[in-house]
Design a protein around this nucleic acid. Structure first.
Lengths: 320, 320
DNA sequence: TTTAGTCTGGCAACCGTTTGCAAGGGAGGA
DNA sequence: TCCTCCCTTGCAAACGGTTGCCAGACTAAA
C-alpha cells in the first residue's frame, strides 16, 4: 500500500496537519521541521492523494478534453497543444473520444464531472440545450460551436470558405458541390451560410455525411453525377475519400473536378494530388481553450481564430 | 452547487446511508423507500461523486492510457478499441500523450495514480527499472514491451520482421538498411535481433531515430549513401519520411530502393507508392490490454498477437 | 404466546487531505 | 518583570461517500 499522510506524520512524530502544510503551505512550517517531514516523505515514497485533496479543496488540477474522433488527424495537434499549455499551468489534460456518439459524449462529461476542473468540448455532437444543462455541473469551453454565454474558441470558417469560393470562381467554376458533415455541425452551417450568400454560384448540397473518408467515398458517385466542376468538402478526410471515390470512377482531380477540404491534415499533404485546403489553427485553438478555461471567471469570452487557404494540387481551372 | 448525498437524504427524510445503499446495494433497501430516494435524487439532479466514492472503495472505474504520440496514426485505433472495450465493462479510459518525453510520462503516471484503477502503458519510453518502481503504486499493463512479471500485450514483431526480410530477399535484396526508432524501444530491438540472426544478409544500422516522419527524412541521405537496396523502417511514419526524403533526391521507390514499414496506418495506404508494411493488430491490442488490466489478479500474463506482411507498392525487385 | 429468523434502516467510523481556530513558547519592548 | 505579538504546531471539523454493526419491526414456526 502506498504511504499516506498519516504514515509520514507518524514516522517523524508530527501531526498530519503539519505534513499537509509542508506541501501546500511550506512557509507556515519551521524549516527544521519541514526538512524532517520532507526526508520522511521521500523515504516512504509519499505522494499526496490528488483525489482526496480535491475533495476538500474542490480543485483537481485536471481538465478533460472531449473529441468526437481521435482518429481524425485534425485533433491530435489540438490535443497536444492543449496538453502542453496545461502542463505549463500545472494542469493535466485527460482526453476521451466519443466515437461520434452523443450519448457517449454525455456519459463522458458526467464521468469527468468532479474529477476535473473543467472540460474542453471540441466539435461537440450534443445539442446546445444539453450542453447548457451539463454546464451547471462542470465548466466548459467549447471549440467550434457558439453557445450563448459560454466561453468558446471559434475558427473563422466563414472567412476560409469565402477564400475557397473566391479561389474556385477565379478558376472559372460556377456549379459547386457542398459536401457537409454531421447534422448540427456548426462548421457545416458556416460553410453553407457563406456559400448561400455568395452571388453567382450554382450550388448543390450533399449531407449530412460522416465526417471521415467513408463519408466522402459514399457521396462520390452523386457528386460526379450532379455536374458540379468543383467541391467544397466538410473536412480533409471527406475530401480525401471523395477524391478516392472519384478516381475509382476514372474521374481526374483536378482535371475534371476540383476539390477543396478543411483542416490541413498530414494525409492531405501526402496525398497525390496534394490537397488544396483551408488550414485550421488547431494548435492555437487548443492553447486558447486551455487559457479560457483557466480564466473563466470571465464568463463567455469568445475567441475567433483566423484560417488560411492553402492552394495545392487538387484545384484547377474549370473545363470549358 | 451540485446536490450531494446529504441533500437527497434530507429531502426524503432518510439517513445518508440509505441513499448510499439505494445506489450501491439496492437489494438492501425497501422498494418503497428506494423509489422515494430515486425520485428525490432525480429531482435534485444528484450524481454520486466518483472521486469521493473512490476514496472509500478504492475503485474509480477509470483507467489511464498513456501513449508517446497521439499524432501517430498507429495509436488511435488502439485507443478507440480500448475505450470501447472498457465501456462494455463499465469503465472509462482517460488518454494522455507524453510527447515522447520520459519525464512527462512519469509525471503523468503519478497523476493517474489514485485517480484510475490501472494504467495501460503503450510503447513506453521509460526504463524497465522505473516502470517496475512505479508499478508499486498503480497496476500496469504494458503494450509492446516485456517486463518480468508484468502483464503485457506484445505484437509479434519478430514474425513480421522475418516475413518482411524473406519478402526482400525473395526479391533479390541482400544489402538492407535497418532504420530503428527511439532508444530502448522494444520493437527496434526485436527487429534488429531477427535481422542479425538471418543468414546471408548484409546489414546497415541507422539509429536511434525519432519515430516519425522527421526521423525518416533525416536519415534519407545516409540511407541513400550506404548502398542498401532495401530498407526496413521502424514504423510507417519513418518509412513515409524516408520515401519523401529519397524522392527529394530523385531516388525512386521502389525502382532504386525498396522500403517496408511497420504498423499499417492510413497515410501509408494513401501514399504513392502505397506502402508495403507489417500490419500491427492495434485494435486487438487495445482490447486485450483492457481485459488484462481487469483480470490482473492474474499477475504477469503475456499475450502475443500476430502480425501480417502486407505487400503493396513500395517494394520491388532489386536492381541487378 | 414465545422464539427464532429476516428485513430494513440508523449510527458512526473511516477513506486521505485541508484549514480555521486556538494554544504554547519565545522574543522584544516598555 | 510583565505584556504583546509572532511563529509554530496541534486539534478537530469538513469534503462526499461507503460499510460493518446493531436494533427495531415483522413474519413465521413452534
Amino acid at each position: 500500500m502506498a504511504a499516506t499522510i498519516k504514515d509520514v506524520a507518524r514516522t517523524c512524530g508530527v501531526h498530519v496537519s503539519t505534513v499537509s502544510r509542508t506541501f501546500s503551505a511550506p512557509h507556515l512550517v519551521n524549516p527544521a521541521t519541514r526538512a524532517r517531514v520532507l526526508a520522511a516523505a521521500d523515504d516512504l515514497g509519499y505522494r499526496p492523494n490528488r483525489a482526496a485533496r480535491a475533495l476538500t479543496t474542490g480543485r483537481t488540477f485536471n481538465m478533460g478534453l472531449i473529441v468526437a474522433d481521435i482518429a481524425n488527424p485534425f485533433f491530435p495537434p489540438l490535443i497536444k497543444a492543449a496538453q502542453a499549455q496545461a502542463r505549463g499551468r500545472d494542469y493535466h489534460v485527460f482526453v476521451a473520444d466519443t466515437d461520434e456518439d452523443p450519448r457517449v459524449e454525455e456519459e463522458l462529461i458526467r464521468t469527468f464531472t468532479k474529477q476535473v476542473d473543467g472540460v474542453l468540448l471540441c466539435s461537440p455532437r450534443l445539442s446546445n440545450r444539453m450542453i447548457e444543462r451539463l454546464a451547471e455541473d462542470v465548466p466548459f469551453v467549447v471549440v467550434n460551436r457558439r453557445i450563448k454565454g459560454m466561453p468558446a474558441v471559434l475558427m473563422n470558417v466563414a472567412q476560409g470558405a469565402r477564400h475557397a469560393l473566391e479561389h474556385l470562381t477565379g478558376l472559372g467554376h460556377r456549379r459547386i458541390a457542398l459536401v457537409s458533415g454531421p447534422i448540427g455541425s456548426w462548421t457545416s452551417n458556416e460553410m453553407q451560410g457563406v456559400a448561400a450568400e455568395t452571388p453567382g454560384l450554382d450550388l448543390v448540397f450533399f449531407g449530412p455525411n460522416q465526417p471521415k473518408e467513408a463519408g466522402g467515398l459514399a457521396v462520390a458517385a452523386d457528386v460526379a453525377a450532379c455536374g458540379a466542376s468543383a467541391v467544397l468538402a466538410y473536412n480533409d478526410l471527406v475530401a480525401l475519400g471523395l477524391i478516392e471515390g472519384l478516381s475509382a470512377m476514372e474521374i481526374g482531380v483536378p482535371d475534371q473536378i476540383s476539390v477543396i477540404g478543411f483542416d490541413d491534415i498530414l494525409p492531405g499533404r501526402l496525398n497525390r494530388p496534394k490537397l488544396t485546403t483551408v488550414a485550421m489553427p488547431a494548435a492555437a485553438a487548443g492553447r486558447m481553450a486551455v487559457d479560457l478555461l483557466l480564466q473563466s471567471g470571465g464568463e463567455g469570452a469568445t475567441v475567433t481564430l483566423d484560417t488560411a487557404l492553402i492552394v495545392r494540387e487538387s484545384t484547377g481551372r474549370a473545363q470549358t
